[in-house]
Design a protein around this nucleic acid. Sequence first.
RNA 1: GUGGGCGUAGUUCAGCGGUUAGAGCGCCAGGUUGUGGCCCUGGAAAUCGUGGGUUCAAAUCCCAUCGCUCACCCCA
Length: 427
Amino acid sequence: MLITQAPKGTQDVLPAESARWQAVESNMREACRLAGYREVRTPVFEHTELFLRSVGDTTDVVQKEMYTFLDKGGRSVTLKPEGTAGVARAFLEAHLEAGALPMKMYYISCPVFRYEKPQSGRLREHHQLGIEVFGAKDASCDAEGIRLALDVLAASGIRGLRVSINSIGCPNCRAAYLEQLKNFLRPRLPRLCDTCRDRFERNPLRILDCKVPSCQAELTDAPDMLGALDEDCAAHFESLKASLNALDVDYSVDPRIVRGLDYYTRTVFEIITDAENGPLTVCGGGRYDGLLKQLGGPELPGFGFGMGVERVLMVQDMMGVRPPEAPVADVFLAALPGARLEALKLLRDLRGAGVACDMDHAARSLKAQFKYADRLGAPYVTVVGGDELARGALRLRDMRRSAEEEIPVSEFIPAIRKKLAGEGAGV
RNA sequence: GUGGGCGUAGUUCAGCGGUUAGAGCGCCAGGUUGUGGCCCUGGAAAUCGUGGGUUCAAAUCCCAUCGCUCACCCCA
């Protein structure tokens, strides 16, 4: 039994996996650079009050999933359960509304925490990539964000995802719709399932998404939100669809997309794939025009999304997308006894010339050093020492071709660089 | 929070009442005293998750507990 164990619902990213993370992250950075987003980093924890007022104090996320605790000063703080609130707070605190608007920001592999029972694709700590834009009211902003998310996924080798969009209107038309929906449901309540009856007061929109067939049967004539949008919200939704078309985004309108965070207005969307156990959302987001005002700031619109890094990697696995493994070292220096200091000097010279190289640090036999080099994936191993070194040369072994040659020390670095440059072209 | 499944070498698993608990892969060593991968030989490695109970006898049956995992809820 090990004396240590990672906390429930957490995952280590071990050296063998970290390159995959970095690849997704660099795809995000590049897409954001091209689209004029700049990185923002905010604290891992915030005042609990921030989430109560943004995410919403009646949501499941706030009511039962937050990591909330008192610090030693008696302040209630919470590990962030999502990315938007902290960025909104930072935007307001730094008075970025006084600068150029819209302000387009992104974040990379931001840890987020939710106290849930872990299962496939769901962790207590996971990481999100995302964007937040403040001060852009047009639906072209929403479409641009969705396009960006798809571009990041495509660059990460993932295709064939479904984009589902919906509009949940503004507080005015949504309130009217909810009344309409509840009036429709009230007489049918006895025939709905237990969870739906529970949802009636808490979150009636969710009932539309119930998977129980008998509930679905009751809902065939239910009013939908899209039909209840007011004029401005309907126009915004039409504009969103036109913008997505302009950006070549294939989407479908899904009136059941709701989202579990209170701050959303108008546009909500999800990017979904089919996992073994059913649909899996890899990215979700939408518009939050009332958020800054609600936090005591100016009335400025907002839009953003969060993308789950672990889920993206999961989809890559499902689709067999596996980035090629880069060797840990391009050249491994296998030192013979008595030549370790020579090897160490050569190591520094090679690195100074930009060659990734490594050597043994465990006084191992030549055989063991070769074995280690092989496991690092090193394409070249150089034997340092012995007769060759005595006459001013090094023996270079090409591990894949099992061929060896002797190179004078003075020509060694240019020679190895030339070989590696050839590799780069071939790959 | 509710409900399933599973805990046996580093790992994937077999064994499911009866001597000293096995295998594949991995690991270490040797075959090759200056050379990896393949092959051969040998070796190390398990208080059978933990605690209690039943039994002449428990990895195996029962109970509890902890852990992992999957689904619901919700979400990335």
